[in-house]
Design a protein around this nucleic acid. Sequence first.
DNA 1: CGCTAATCTAGAACAAGTTACAGACTTGAT
DNA 2: ATCAAGTCTGTAACTTGTTCTAGATTAGCG
Lengths: 203, 203
Amino acid sequence: MAASTARPVTPPLTERQEARRRRILHASAQLASRGGFDAVQMREVAESSQVALGTLYRYFPSKIHLLVATMQDQLEHMHGTLRKKPPAGDTPAERVAETLMRAFRALQREPHLADAMVRALTFADRSVSPEVDQVSRQTTVIILDAMGQENPTPEQLSAVRVIEHTWHSALITWLSGRASIAQVKIDIETVCRLIDLTAPTDT
Amino acid sequence: MAASTARPVTPPLTERQEARRRRILHASAQLASRGGFDAVQMREVAESSQVALGTLYRYFPSKIHLLVATMQDQLEHMHGTLRKKPPAGDTPAERVAETLMRAFRALQREPHLADAMVRALTFADRSVSPEVDQVSRQTTVIILDAMGQENPTPEQLSAVRVIEHTWHSALITWLSGRASIAQVKIDIETVCRLIDLTAPTDT
DNA sequence: CGCTAATCTAGAACAAGTTACAGACTTGAT
DNA sequence: ATCAAGTCTGTAACTTGTTCTAGATTAGCG
């Protein structure tokens, strides 16, 4: 089972197609950076990226797909950036918390973009599951990286999932103005303690 | 401070108005129970509840407001139900996990309704913050109830917030088919361990 | 009862996501 | 170079959330 894990239907894009795709993602991020989720209007994205509306929909079958893809794109960036300066904490919990806080600070620099991406991510329905899952896997990798765990136990994977849950939901409460930055920090630090709970138990 | 904690602008409703409000919420829940978020169409809600579209919007200024209010409504129900049979676990963590799993099973009985409510909750923007906050407070009360904690420490409140984060986000992953029921159970149990971490520490 | 303000109704109108389609352009193979 | 298949463009249409308006109804008050 699980022959091709990723895109089942991605006949390699030509150069111009790749360029179109980039233009679209760029326009999406740009519009999102201004007014957040609402400002990413499909007609505007099409116009900004010099592509017909129908073409936009051929590349990204819905606004949600587009924004989730935008998030994938940004995540890759971020992972690259984070790799360069690995977190310095002594314990896995500290390093994960530090990593997430660093990501959080990056999001704070573009709160509108964060709004668009995170709202899309949590609003996505089943039709976007593969893409959302991809984002989730990418996030998992980042967290495991920070933990410095090569072979996580199932227990640790649960902890990582819970951390991701908290991460997404805490972002939402922050974006909708119901939690302060300080509170998000506390929540992240709190949930990261779960790692200590599952880390040195056995072997 | 905090004179009127709740609705600042709620001149008491007449009987007929109260009835209209109930009809609307009922129609909303009913439509949601069928097709989830998408099936709750404002025109249909208006028609089902025998109210003009404009009136619907006077009562609930957006679809999201309506669905969040529907969730408040359902939460009250649930809180009542949960009260009757308090959880039987020995530790606070067990009792909270048991309570949430009970709530989860209730949601499983109406997955479409759950979809509509949870999607609305996480998609809500700042304009719905008061209402979403109300839901959050209600959830907090339910969890604290299960813990049996009268005077939670700030640390415990953080743990509760993290549990709520996990609860919402885990529901989302389940609703969008990216996590199984078993996985949600594990995540809930995992995060509830945080309670042990913060419970008997001091005093 | 009769008045006035607020509320409700029916329905049109508008906004943005999505779909549909006819014609022009590209691509790849021969 | 030519042809067929697949893409892209421009544009209109459709859907559903939201807003607006004019006229009916209701509620509270003298």
